[in-house]
Nucleic acid binder design. Structure first.
Lengths: 225, 225
DNA sequence: TGACACATACCAACCGGTCGGTATTATTGT
DNA sequence: ACAATAATACCGACCGGTTGGTATGTGTCA
């Protein structure tokens, strides 16, 4: 391979972009998904045009329809990407995920979600929650993709909740997955209130209620609030 | 079939009504607002075209722009109408609003909201909640109109919550208006989950959590659940 | 008669999507 | 080893239909 590289030294300029100081040379597909998520969170799915996404991503319309059969297909792909992004940002990277005590870890989760409620709404709101609100009747593929993302989050959170229930018990007829979905509901609703007010404070208040509820369920109110 | 025009032909009190500040019951205008609310709840604001609203309302585009300066103006007017509709349907017409005990009345409210979560999502979801999610960054008049509607609901609900707190006390640092907004948040979030699942059951589960939370706050868990 | 409540016709901008083409990379035949 | 071929990635002009909005006409009633 050394021989071929010396001979073709002139033409091997494009390939080692990752090695050189050039930007990571992310492919157009990834850039389109990222741009779509940002734009849809800002102004909604229907109000976002394909051209707009292309400009935000820095690619042409030709590239868009090379990678995605339709705007709908991009939405489905972006919902899938959002699942991975959320898993990373919420369940993998933060420090609290390594808390040993399951109830402390659960409260760490809620506390983390609360701490995210700051700055412009388009920076903390849920991409799939925004999208499914518009598309649930118009596109079943999009609806299903958003549902899958929400379900993945709930199932992941339910693991921690179940562990906490197993260890501490819960004096009520509460199932872990149900409570996980309730956490989701409070967050999604809090996002809407924050958007309406133009201020995330009201959203934080609502999550504070959620915090108290969970602590009460585990009979720990006053101890950790 | 179209007898509405001849039937309404007799009424004519445009001048006095205009002086009184209340717009006269213009037929096309009311039909447009009603059609807009229904269509937006079904497919969102941006995806709903002016033509579509006109067809659903059974009026022409000329009538639309005679009554409303723009699509945005219609949205603002519809948000105002929604406030009145919700006040009627939720705080005036139902039987539970006449329950004497304030805590029972508050629980009657939540129970009523829970009972609404049935059938297609477009029949129980919140018009202004749907709209503000799309428009919060694109149109401040729409955002403000939706905020006003949500705030009116919260303030109205907070009255009953405050009365219940005054009578029964509440062993926590909970303010009535805060809790009222939390009720709103849970409902709005439950709507999103129901849309994603294509099934209101998950929404009912979340409102059941809300019910338990409120009862716990008042120290009545197990007594009325 | 003239203000009001519509109806009809129309428009420029924009929409999602198509299409013919090019540059680059990977595979293959000899 | 290398030309021929094929596949991929991308470009941007273009298309028919739709969009919110306008200009103007018409019937009705005080």
């Amino acid at each position: 391979m050394d021989a071929s590289r010396t001979i073709n030294a002139k033409k091997s300029k494009a390939a080692p972009a990752a090695i050189a100081g050039k930007p990571p040379a992310r492919n157009a597909r990834a850039k389109l998904i990222e741009a779509a998520i940002a734009t849809v969170r800002y102004k909604g799915f229907s109000a976002t045009s394909v051209d707009e996404i292309c400009v935000a991503a820095g690619v042409t319309k030709g590239a868009f329809f090379h990678h995605f059969a339709s705007k709908e297909a991009l939405a489905v792909a972006a919902a899938g990407a959002w699942t991975d992004i959320a898993e990373q940002r919420i369940f993998t990277l933060p420090d609290w995920v390594r808390i040993a005590d399951p109830l402390d870890r659960l409260m760490g989760h809620i506390e983390f979600r609360l701490s995210m409620l700051d700055g412009p709404a388009e920076d903390f709101t849920c991409f799939v929650g925004t999208m499914v609100q518009e598309a649930y009747n118009s596109s079943d593929p999009i609806r299903a993709a958003c549902d899958a993302s929400i379900t993945a989050y709930a199932r992941r959170l339910a693991e921690d909740i179940q562990t906490a229930i197993d260890q501490y018990g819960i004096g009520h007829d509460v199932r872990a997955l149900d409570l996980a979905y309730h956490v989701q509901a409070v967050l999604q609703g809090a996002f809407i209130l924050a958007k309406a007010k133009g201020n995330p404070e009201i959203a934080r208040d609502s999550v504070a209620h959620l915090k108290r509820y969970v602590l009460m369920l585990f009979g720990k109110e006053g101890e950790r609030l």
